[in-house]
């Protein structure tokens, strides 16, 4: 067992992927609780498609992928937030519009520059080889920033998520905190999407939050639980993708583990409910 992990981490690309992946899944799970509860899950999905477009354009221009994708996706996050807040334009339709447009732009750019080759597949479904040394440094710095900012603003994020009206009435500037959440989400998505894939990255945000909400009852316990679930699922997922005889795409394998975790928590929840019912019946 121990030898297995030593062998696994002797591949430096794998070690890099695990470091960045663990940080990104931690960030994603923390933000995910707030996003899911605020009914913003689709924003995460929309942003990953925008990220795909941005990465494709960056590759076409021979620019550094993260340097292009981060600002573009952050801008898209603010835009999507504005759209979903204004009642006139239907938020979900706007998100679908923006995500398909970016996908189309990305595909057109790729087909005209590098051609529709293995790259497209890597962007869409992720590749464990995606992280270069420079990427790792930037990713670790950004992910740490996200974590620190989240910890500092934890109480405000709770208040803004639970009851925006009240928070605003007591003088909390909710608009800024909504933007902060969108900003941190955008960064997290860009960092994770090349490894997890544009189509799969939003699962890192949504699954852990939903999983821990099955059984946890307070915001703090949901946050802590989803962080643990997310990190554990990522690690198991990566290990499986390495250990599988034919090898598994990392993104898909991490999502599969998340699905299993979600199922397990649902089962625990059901059992608890049945036990309570039985106890009540026994008492009557």
């Amino acid at each position: 067992m121990f030898d297995f992990f030593i062998e696994m981490f002797s591949y430096s690309f794998l070690a890099r992927a695990v470091i960045v992946g663990l940080l990104v899944s931690l960030c994603a799970s923390l933000l995910g609780v707030s996003l899911v509860l605020k009914r913003y899950s689709m924003i995460g999905d929309g942003l990953s498609h925008v990220g795909f477009g941005a990465l494709a354009v960056a590759t076409g221009l021979n620019a550094a992928p993260l340097a292009v994708a981060v600002p573009v996706v952050v801008m898209a996050a603010f835009l999507l937030l504005r759209l979903s807040e204004s009642s006139k334009i239907k938020g979900d339709a706007a998100i679908a519009l923006i995500s398909t447009s970016s996908l189309a732009i990305g595909v057109v750019v790729i087909s005209q520059t590098t051609g529709m080759n293995i790259d497209v597949c890597n962007y869409l479904f992720g590749s464990i080889l995606a992280m270069s040394h420079a990427d790792v440094a930037l990713s670790v710095a950004l992910a740490t920033t996200v974590l620190v900012v989240f910890a500092l603003f934890y109480n405000k994020i709770f208040a803004v998520t639970f009851d925006e009206q009240f928070a605003r009435a007591t003088g909390v500037r909710t608009g800024i905190y909504n933007m902060l959440i969108a900003f941190l989400t955008a960064i997290t998505i860009v960092l994770g999407m090349r490894m997890m894939g544009a189509l799969l990255i939003s699962s890192l945000i949504i699954f852990p939050a939903l999983t821990s909400m099955r059984t946890c009852k307070t915001f703090r316990s949901v946050t802590v639980c989803s962080a643990i679930v997310s990190v554990a699922c990522y690690f198991v997922g990566v290990t499986l993708s390495y250990a599988a005889p034919k090898g598994l795409p990392t993104g898909a394998s991490v999502v599969m583990v998340n699905i299993l975790a979600f199922g397990a928590f649902c089962l625990v929840f059901l059992c608890k409910k049945l036990l309570v019912k039985k106890r009540i019946r026994a008492e009557v």
């Binding site: 109480n155 208040a159 928070a167 009852k217 307070t218």
Partner: peptide, 15 residues
């Protein structure tokens, strides 16, 4: 919304 009673009450102090 999964929030504890104490968490909700305490958030009144945020302003």
């Amino acid at each position: 919304f999964p929030a504890g009673v104490y968490e909700v009450v305490l958030s009144g102090r945020l302003g």
